[in-house]
Structure formats: C-alpha cells, structure tokens
C-alpha cells in the first residue's frame, strides 16, 4: 500500500494549493529565484514610478552635450540628440513591460479557453482546433511579424497583436494536454455524476489545475517577449521615435557605437536584467510548483 512514490511525494514536499506563504518560504531558500524576484521587482518599480525617478524629460532635446559620458548631471550620459539616457532607459521600460503583459495576458486567456475546449470538447472540435494551432505555429515567427507590421504599420498594438497570435497555440496546446489528462480522472466523473454542468466543471475543477503550469511558462516567456519587442524596435518596426524604449535606445547606441559605448550599455543592461530576472523567477516557480514539469513541453 505505501509505495515508495508516496514517500517520495511526501518528501518532495509538493506544496498544497493555496499555500502562498509556503511558496514564499520555499522561494527564500532558492537563492537564484530570490534574485530573480528582486530583479523583476526592480524593473517593475522603475517602470511604475518612472516619472518620479527620472531626472529629465526623456524626449526633450537639450542643447547641452551630445553623446556625453555619464556625469552627475546625466547619470548615463546623453544620446546623439542630447536627451538624457538615464531618463530614457527608466521610461523605456514601460513599453516592453506593457507589450509583454498585454500580449501574454491575451494569449494566456485565449489559449486557456481554447485549450480547455479542445481538451474537454468532442473529438472533432479537438481535431479542428489542433489543425488551426498547428497552422499558426507553422509560420516562422519573425516573418509573420514582419508581414503583419507591414500590413498594420509599426505600432505597439501591432507588436502586441503579433506576439499574442503566435503564443496562443503554444499555451492552448499545453492547456489541452493537461485538460485531456484530467478529463478521465475520477473527480471529474464524480462531478458529472452529481449533475454539474460542463462550464462549472471546466471553471471550478479543471481550470485551477491547468493554470498553474501555464502561469509558470508565461513568466518564463516574458524575457523572450521583451527581447522580441526590443528586436522589433531595434529594426524600427516597434514604437515610433521619439518614444523612449529599450530597443530604440539600443538602436541609437548601435549607430553611434564608434563614438560612445554608453548608449549600448545603457540600452542593453535593463534588457539583460529583466530577462535574467524573469527567467530565474520562472524557473524557481517551476521547481516549487511542479518538479516534474520540464522546460521542454
């Protein structure tokens, strides 16, 4: 009766649902995860309180020194138009975070719903949805992005749209697989035998068991989205100038790299920090919630 698995499960101390404090406690033991959480917090706070932190107007072109090195007046120097780089970097975190959260939020919500429907619905619907998911996934991401932005014009909205569309099938597929595994479990049959409606079963009994791993995956996808957004801005396909943005700062720095290294450093450091922060946090959350869930789903 007692199998070694039971002991293992007990010994792994898989936390129960609703044990937020237990997660925090575990996170405290995971150094890298804690570092990630701090970095994420830092990036968030700087974007949120950007107007309070920044020292100059990020889009005001000043008559002072251009491409200046860091000084007391300009903490990270100035760019080719004499704008304060520090203020641009602080303010420039808002767009990547907005893009990341809007696009991943949309794709998580839609992916979850589609995945639940595919996993729980009739077989033919499952097949149709899978066909659609696979069709979308078969487009090379960057080509798809270029095509869509070519059609809609470069803007934050089109970037969000592109990322959302390409991420939906990934989350939907994972949600579908998880739902399908749960579908035949006894507690679902027990709910059905009590007369629970399908909506209720999906919302109350399936969703909470599916959403955990997905949220972890989303948090690990945030850096990729930030990188894609910065990449598109770098290519001139993201936000329009003079809006401050990490990718845009990086692009400016690339153009003037022979004059000064500071712009490149200022533009890339926040991207690196945000990427590392979300990756560490995501991995820590994955280890805490589901030791079995590999990165390679």
């Amino acid at each position: 009766m007692t199998s070694i698995q039971a002991i293992r499960a007990e010994a792994n101390g898989e936390p129960g649902p609703g044990t937020f404090l237990a997660v925090l406690r575990q996170l405290r033991k995971n150094r890298l995860g804690l570092l990630g959480a701090l970095l994420v917090l830092l990036v968030f706070a700087s974007a949120m309180f950007a107007p309070l932190i920044m020292t100059h107007d990020p889009i005001r072109i000043m008559v002072g020194p251009r491409l200046a090195a860091p000084s007391r007046e300009f903490l990270l120097g100035t760019d080719q138009l004499g704008r304060d780089t520090f203020s641009r970097v602080i303010m420039g975190g808002r767009i990547p975070l907005l893009v990341a959260f809007a696009s991943l939020g949309i794709s998580l919500a839609l992916g979850l719903v589609l995945g639940l429907v595919a996993g729980f619905g009739p077989r033919w619907l499952d097949n149709v949805l899978l066909l659609i998911f696979d069709t979308i996934r078969s487009f090379p991401g960057i080509i798809f992005a270029l095509a869509v932005i070519g059609l809609l014009g470069p803007s934050v909205t089109s970037v969000i749209f592109v990322i959302a569309i390409t991420s939906i099938p990934i989350y939907a597929r994972i949600a579908r697989t998880q739902t399908e595994a749960l579908r035949n479990s006894e507690y679902i049959a027990a709910e059905q035998s009590m007369g629970a409606s399908t909506t209720r079963i999906l919302a109350v009994h399936v969703l909470p068991n599916v959403i955990g791993p997905l949220v972890i995956l989303v948090s690990m996808d945030v850096p990729a989205v930030i990188a894609v957004q910065a990449g598109l801005s770098f290519l001139g396909l993201g936000v329009r100038p003079p809006t401050p943005d990490w990718g845009a700062v990086l692009n400016d720095g690339y153009n003037y790299i022979q004059n000064t290294p500071w712009l490149v450093i200022a533009g890339s450091t926040p991207i690196v920090l945000a990427t590392l922060g979300f990756t560490f946090l995501g991995e820590a959350l994955r280890d805490i919630f589901d030791p079995k869930l590999g990165k390679d789903i």
């Binding site: 649902p17 006894e186 507690y187 027990a190």
Partner: peptide, 16 residues
C-alpha cells in the same frame, strides 16, 4: 441517487 468512485482521494477535486 449519487455515486462514489473507487479512488477515495482521487475522486475529490484536489484544489477544493
């Protein structure tokens, strides 16, 4: 009429 399923723990919704 109600039914009880085989697995005592597995037939209870785990997050409730």
């Amino acid at each position: 009429m109600t039914m009880m399923f085989q697995d005592p723990i597995g037939s209870l919704s785990p997050r409730l």
